[in-house]
Design a protein around this nucleic acid. Structure first.
Lengths: 258, 258
DNA sequence: CAAAAATCGAACAAAACCGAACAAAAGTGC
DNA sequence: GCACTTTTGTTCGGTTTTGTTCGATTTTTG
């Protein structure tokens, strides 16, 4: 019966009931009031709950999160990568986040960041970071792709060219053994290239499933990326290549029992 | 400035009922009248409610009315107007929908339309019409305004200037007796002007509450509008003026018992 | 217009709740 | 099994919230 056990369940209860009480939770888990207080403090510090006298409630402005949150449930790998990546993103910078569920996971982890000037061509990212009050959000224009909420095409590309970013966090559909980033949609490729061109620093977030896939259009090479965040060890030859390109590789490994 | 379980729920009740009473809340929560008074004082100090004798109401200073609250205000009338308006929108055209709860209601009624090429600077409209598979959606860029999902600023304005629309459906914050369309936000005004300039035909959707409000910035005159959709009869002088401007007025009257 | 009723806010005591500190228990790695 | 870290339980002083009373103010009623 450890902390990590209770936290997800507390959030679950908070989401269904809208609130939780210290006493109710202590009774439910069979632990002391003080233990629950510690749990709630942790969750409040992480921004997941808002502490009130006698318990906690969902953070204000968080009513429709249930669905979006569920989207990340059981996606430990992505959340873990996103967490590590977000920890490397400083406050008070101009930041681009592009299309992809991995970047959306990063957005989720950026809710507590301060002073971000965020530009995105991903409607979901914009919707997620609306929760972060201290974050200016700019949406690029573009054709809306229904499947993933991405904004693409020349409209998107042109509006990106009007900016210069301190950092871009991007993802891709596939990543081959030569270290090339690939995508399915040619329209998205030119958008991604524009992003890389306009950014002083580039983070790529790609979980291991990308390595076993292929896609027709080449975006760029890992040589153009500053840091690669992934969830499993790279093959020795790719790792060596990254070293040659001066591309840092960060592996967010899964812990044992998970 | 404390935080309690009751605050979110009080706001919830206030939003659905439009008002709350001290006694009703005390009964609902099983606490003393004085406790509720303290709660209402806190919420009033925070600007969330407006205190009145015996209870509290939603702040009617117009600017303070939150988006979510406004969304459900006068909803029946809005849906009715939207239905009448949507019936006048043909299939297979290029269409612009701007910011505003009324235009969102129109978007809701356009889900069955065919062959639309929709451009919008309203994230909510885009999210709604994702349901319409036979509709190409283009989102203008811009600064995201958290309060209502609007995209504004020069980025939005410039991207609008790249299009030409068969029809624009717009709304405004207020409408005075001279037939001038007004808005609170100057940034939004220039966007609205750009829309009117780029459109072959303009529909304005404005319920009767707009007539009893005022706002600082002038968008344009009803003379620039082709059809005005509203929910109550206009004053005789304004109606006469509209006739002079060749502006058609469509009143979606409420049925009896409402 | 004035009296009656209801509502309000201030003050104070009681109750509930909080966090800190330290000890006990449960895991962890060797 | 043994040192070590992490988590939980217990106690206690301090803080926040709540209930109660009471005089002042507002609204309603006659």
């Amino acid at each position: 019966m450890s902390q990590t056990f209770r936290h997800p369940e507390i959030l679950e209860i908070a989401r269904t009931d809208g609130k939780v009480t210290v006493e109710g939770l202590a009774d439910h888990f069979g632990v002391t009031l003080q233990t629950i207080r510690r749990d709630l403090k942790d969750l409040a510090d992480a921004g997941k709950l808002e502490r009130v006298h006698g318990g906690a409630v969902l953070p204000s402005g968080t009513t429709n999160i249930g669905y979006e949150e569920r989207r990340w449930l059981n996606q430990e790998a992505k959340t873990r990568m996103a967490g590590v990546c977000a920890a490397r993103i400083p406050n008070n910078i101009s930041l681009f986040l592009n299309i992809g569920t991995s970047t959306e996971a990063v957005a989720q982890e950026l809710i507590q960041h301060k002073g971000l000037m965020l530009v995105t061509n991903n409607m979901n990212v914009a919707n997620i970071l609306v929760q972060n009050q201290d974050c200016q959000i700019i949406v690029t224009g573009g054709h809306l792709r229904r499947t993933d909420g991405g904004l693409i095409g020349t409209i998107a590309e042109n509006s990106i060219l009007q900016f210069k970013f301190d950092l871009a966090v991007i993802s891709c559909s596939a990543l081959d053994q030569d270290g090339d980033m690939l995508d399915f949609d040619v329209q998205e490729v030119s958008v991604s290239r524009a992003i890389i061109r306009q950014s002083r620093k580039v983070f790529l977030v790609a979980d291991h499933t990308k390595f076993s896939r292929s896609a027709p259009a080449k975006i760029a090479s890992l040589a153009d990326v500053d840091v690669l965040f992934t969830d499993r060890k790279l093959s020795p030859q790719l790792l060596a290549a990254c070293r040659g390109w001066n591309t840092e590789v960060v592996v967010a490994e899964s812990r044992e029992g998970i």
